[in-house]
Computed example of a mutant assay.
Amino acid sequence: MSSSNGRAASEIFKGQALVYRHLFAFENSMSLKWIVELGIPDIIHNHGHPITLSNLVSILQIPQEKIGNVRRLMRYLAHNGFFEIVRIHEDQEEKEAYALTPASELLVKSSEMCLAPMVECILDPTLSGSYHLLKEWIYEKDKTLFNVSLGSDIWDFLQKNPSYNSIFNEAMASDSRVLNLGLRDCNSVSAELECVVDVGGGTGTTAKILCEKFPNLKCIVFDRPQVVENLSGSNNVSYVGGDMFQSIPKADAVLLKLILHDWIDKDCIKILQKCKEAISDNGEKGKVIVIDIVINEKQEEHEITGTKLLMDVNMASLNGKERDEQEWKKLFLESGFKDYKISPLTGLLSLIEIYP
Rank of each mutant, 00 (worst) to 15 (best):
I59N: 06
G81I: 07
V70R: 02
N55S: 15
R21K: 15
N55D: 15
I43V: 14
I44P: 00
I85A: 03
I67S: 03
L23K: 14
A17E: 14
I35C: 06
Q16M: 15
M74W: 00
A97T: 04
I12R: 01
G81N: 07
I51G: 03
S104V: 00
A17W: 09
W34H: 04
A25K: 09
G39F: 02
I35F: 04
I62N: 01
P102Q: 06
S58L: 10
I35T: 08
L23D: 13
E93N: 15
T52E: 07
E96L: 12
I35L: 12
N80Q: 08
Q64Y: 14
T52R: 05
M30K: 13
F83A: 05
V57G: 00
V36N: 02
I62F: 05
R71N: 05
I35Q: 04
Y76I: 09
F13S: 11
G68N: 05
L32V: 04
I67H: 06
P102W: 01
F13G: 02
L18D: 15
N28G: 10
G15D: 11
S58Y: 09
F82E: 00
A99C: 05
L73R: 08
K33A: 12
Q61R: 15
M30N: 15
I40A: 02
S58G: 09
M30A: 13
E90D: 09
